[in-house]
């Protein structure tokens, strides 16, 4: 008889890699933003708004947010898988985390491109 070994759903490597790629994206963004703020930080509302109105910064911040959503999902899912054993509770929490993160992504999009 064939010795069948139970394996997973094969999303592990993809998520593992995505967590690292998104981490690099966020790290690079963080260093750029800190460098810019150290050089010239806006101090009033007009300056702050104009700073975020720069096209490339919106683009980069959007990439940061998308990376954050995926990165946070993988991380929080791993934590839930490790500490929350009852399947129903874990599923509920995972669904709530996904809903929150997707909503945050939409919210961030709206903040960034609001005129």
């Amino acid at each position: 008889m064939v010795n069948r070994v139970i394996v997973g759903a094969h999303y592990g490597l993809r998520d593992w890699l995505a967590q690292r790629v998104t981490a690099v994206v966020m790290a690079v963004y963080t260093l750029i933003v800190i460098a810019l703020l150290l050089a010239d930080a806006p101090t009033d509302f007009a300056g702050w708004k104009a700073w975020f109105a720069q096209g490339w910064l919106r683009f980069a911040t959007f990439l940061f947010i998308i990376s954050l959503v995926y990165h946070a999902w993988v991380g929080v899912r791993d934590v839930l898988m490790d500490y929350i054993k009852p399947v129903g509770t874990r599923l509920l929490l995972q669904v709530l985390v996904i809903l929150a993160l997707v909503g945050y992504g939409g919210w961030a999009l709206q903040i960034l491109w609001r005129a």
Partner: peptide
């Protein structure tokens, strides 16, 4: 990481 996730709402 968990703390940052929980506080994300406030930061946004």
């Amino acid at each position: 990481g968990l703390f940052l996730f929980v506080m994300l709402f406030w930061l946004l």
